[in-house]
Amino acid sequence: MKSAYQYDIHLPANYDPNQKYPTIFTLHGKGSDEKNMFQLVEPLNEQFIIVGIRGNLRLGMGFQFYELKSLGNPIREMFDLAIQNLESFIRYATEKYPIDANKRYLLGFSQGAILSMSLALTMGDQLRGIVALNGYVPHFVKAEYSLQSIEDVSMFISHGEYDSVFPIQIGYETAEYFQKKTSKVTFNIYPSDHGVSEGNRTDFVQWLMEDAEVSMNN
């Protein structure tokens, strides 16, 4: 199997090739890259494998996973293909590296958060959990995709109170949508614009460590 994406992989410092590890796949925002995302999750690299996925479409000095017709309106064909390719990539990486298939997490910001939440809905309990920072779920995903149960998927959703790209109301609507589908939703608002505050980072790092520890004890 060949990867549709370039990526960085960071193995734990005391890596044991005979052990399977919980893993975080990061998905960056529009115009960014996988290296920016690693800065957010670097404190977790002692316990987790970190796989930073780079969007396959160039945008300025960075990359993206799909293009838009307008703000909040992905080009459907490109979005569909990104979802398919990312599902395939997660399978590819799980086969290639010592990844525990029962402890796979997605962590995305903006476009990456949109993809992470959509993938939670298409992959269901193939994922242990997701962290979605300042995103939403496109209407066509909710209305037209084949959706899986996410009852057992842990979710950390956060939004900036002063987000000038996706207004805070979108954050409330997104959280409400998922709270109807699973009881495992943490929803936090931070006094920030369209970005990740230090408080947000501290909270999701702690959340991931605790959730992975719970999964190891079950």
Rank of each mutant, 00 (worst) to 15 (best):
S118E: 01
M117P: 06
G108H: 00
N102A: 12
L107S: 06
F109Q: 05
F109E: 02
M117H: 09
L127F: 13
R104W: 00
A113C: 10
K96Y: 00
L106S: 04
Q111N: 11
A120C: 15
I114C: 09
F109N: 07
L119G: 05
A120E: 06
L119K: 01
L106F: 09
S110H: 02
T122K: 09
M117Y: 06
Y105M: 08
R104Q: 09
A120V: 12
Q111G: 04
A120Q: 09
K96A: 03
L127N: 08
L106Y: 03
M123G: 13
G124Q: 09
Y105R: 07
M123D: 05
Q126V: 07
L115K: 03
M123C: 11
Y97E: 10
Q126P: 07
L106A: 06
Y105D: 06
R104M: 08
S110K: 02
L107K: 04
F109K: 04
N102I: 00
P98N: 13
L119Q: 03
G108R: 00
M123Q: 14
A101H: 11
A120W: 01
M117L: 15
S116G: 15
G112C: 11
L121Q: 08
L127M: 09
Q126M: 13
I114M: 14
K103I: 07
M123W: 09
L119W: 01
M117R: 05
M123P: 12
P98T: 10
L115N: 02
S116H: 06
G112P: 07
K96D: 00
K96P: 02
L119S: 11
A101V: 12
A113E: 05
D125R: 12
R104N: 06
L107I: 11
L119R: 02
G108S: 04
G124H: 09
D125P: 08
M117V: 07
L127Q: 11
G108D: 01
K103A: 14
I114P: 03
M117K: 10
S118K: 00
L121H: 02
L121K: 00
K96L: 04
Y105P: 12
G124P: 12
S110G: 03
K96G: 00
Y97N: 10
D100A: 09
Q126A: 14
M117C: 14
L107Y: 06
T122H: 13
G112V: 03
Q126G: 08
N102L: 05
F109I: 11
R104I: 14
Y97Q: 07
I99G: 06
P98M: 03
D100F: 05
R128Q: 15
Q126F: 11
Y97I: 04
